[in-house]
Structures are given as structure tokens and as C-alpha cells.
Amino acid sequence: MATVIDLAFGQKGIIKDFSEHVLPIKLLELGCLPGNSVELVQIAPLKDPIYINLNGSHIAIRRSLAQLIELDIVEETQAP
């Protein structure tokens, strides 16, 4: 199962349905809901935390939390 940490730089994923109790409500309120997109912006030099664009919000979260967000990776077919 792919999660946020499997994304490559600049790659996007669409958040999958997840059971309610996994993620903190706080994250949901920032838009971490099924169907919304996550883009990996940066990874800190020591691999942690991870800097993402979650539904338009730019936030940094720790790897342990990012691992809980399951998603379908969108294959980029964008023209350069």
C-alpha cells in the first residue's frame, strides 16, 4: 500500500479512504480527506520531517504520521 512517504519529489497522490481513528482530527481539518491530493514538496536533509502540499496547505509533518496517510500515486503525464 502506498503512503505519503512513497511519493517522489513533485509527485502527487490522491488520499484513499481510511478508517477514522487512524489520523488525528487536526490533519483531517487541514484537508487530509479521501479524494484530496497530496504533493511531496521536500524532504528534510535527515529524511524527516516531510514537507507536503496537502490540498493547498503547505505543511511539514513527521515521517511517522506521513506513513499513515494512504494514497494512490498519480502518474505524472504532464507536458514539460
Binding site: 520531517p49 503547505h58 505543511i59 511539514a60
Partner: peptide
Amino acid sequence: SLFMVEMPT
């Protein structure tokens, strides 16, 4: 509290 930092413009 959980660690979450907004990266503002």
C-alpha cells in the same frame, strides 16, 4: 500536541 508546522509563503 502533534508535530505539524505550516510552511507559509
